[in-house]
Design a binder for these strands. Structure first.
Lengths: 219, 219
DNA sequence: AATATAGTTTAGGGCAATCTAAATATATTA
DNA sequence: TAATATATTTAGATTGCCCTAAACTATATT
């Protein structure tokens, strides 16, 4: 259908655009893809030829409806495979990303829909990110970062903002995983680090940066 | 690790060499890969550079121990994925091959070993072909083609020699699948077609060619 | 043994995706 | 606004994998 390189660029544009709403710069894409600006320009022009992005010289790109559809289907495939890897093959959450990165390029609607059915239509992946359904619709839910919680309040971990391996392994060491109850015990006003109690048992001091990456459902 | 093209050529050489024990000709490889002889020569020379095959101009190739190991691991991946697709995602046996063809290129020992464990170490794929274990060992078993069975004797279907979609769909129509009991009722000596009784209920007339492709365990 | 034919390789080129270096456009700021 | 810095694009090369056409080698036939 599309080459792996094309798919990876589309996903990159999609992800960058999620944060910054405006059009995506060549450098941003090159940075994300860990490649040169020249290569990025080249690919953006080719994606433009194929009507997957709107490209204007020196102005950056944004996804066309076609490009958007493809990107969302890729996100769907990626997250369903991640769910499969974690749920069925018992991989830890820091291990699933790279494997899903390969599996997502396997091209078959039928396969992914049957996988979805086999997994009983999960709504969120092992990092708590929503899995688009076959129509590309995401499930929304309200979530708060631990950094936003007032002292004394608590929540259940339902996601993480950062997918970096080191971060996830750090959480593993702290026995923090999806479903873990987190209560903010104290906030250090100097650096906004905070002391938390997890599952009512363990207390940890976490930095403002870590707190900002923990997403909870308020209790 | 290796490119998909390299992997596909190695598998092709492996499969051709299974039937004919001697070295594999350029044309045989080109034919199998549905590509030109020039392209095949090109790739065979590159595989030779990489020590995966022994190549002699105008003499054909054979796999080195390294090439053989890679090929067997590919067969392992292919057949485990086929088993997963049939067993867990409920794909029919004529649908699994093409999907496994893509999945087998996903490069991770860990993934395939966990998949193996998840599937409880199956020994045979949905076509009855043996699945090599992590050490590359195949399970052997005695099998007979229906064409070899004497009139009056019976067996249980444990495999098929032909993986062609049309053939497998034809068997589906006849409700013949792995585990089906097949009894040879009559043999037409003129063309060696034969009349069979399946599961003691349905009788069918099948050609010599079809009979030769049905593999059974004698009862 | 000479020749026809089948099989194989080489030559030369194309395309996708990458690179570095150089050129050019845009943005910042003195 | 002119100079400088940053961002982007173009030019030209490279690599992997594929192609066709032409050349070459092996083999089969007379």
């Amino acid at each position: 259908m599309y080459t792996q390189a094309e798919e990876n660029y589309l996903k990159a544009i999609f992800k960058i655009a999620e944060k910054e709403k405006k059009s995506v710069s060549t450098n941003a894409v090159a940075g994300f893809m860990k490649t040169s600006a020249a290569s990025a320009t080249d690919m953006l022009q080719r994606l433009s030829e194929k009507k997957m992005v709107n490209y204007e010289k020196y102005k950056g790109v944004f996804l066309t409806p076609l490009g958007n559809r493809i990107a969302i289907q890729l996100v769907r495939k990626h997250r369903l495979w991640e769910f499969f890897l974690a749920e069925k093959l018992k991989f830890a959450w820091h291990q699933v990303h790279d494997l899903a990165e390969m599996l997502e390029h396997v091209d078959s609607e039928e396969l992914i829909n049957r996988l979805d059915e086999f997994l009983q239509y999960p709504k969120f992946d092992p990092h708590g990110d929503p899995i688009p359904n076959a129509d590309g619709k995401f499930t929304l839910r309200s979530q708060w970062s631990v950094a936003e919680l007032p002292t004394g309040s608590a929540g259940i971990l339902i996601g993480v903002r950062e997918h970096d391996t080191d971060f996830l392994e750090y959480l593993n060491d702290l026995k923090i995983r999806l479903g873990t109850q987190i209560k903010v015990v104290q906030k250090v006003s100097y650096d906004q680090s905070c002391r938390i109690l997890t599952d009512g048992r363990f207390d940890h001091l976490i930095s403002r940066q870590v707190a900002a990456n923990l997403l909870v459902k308020k209790l």
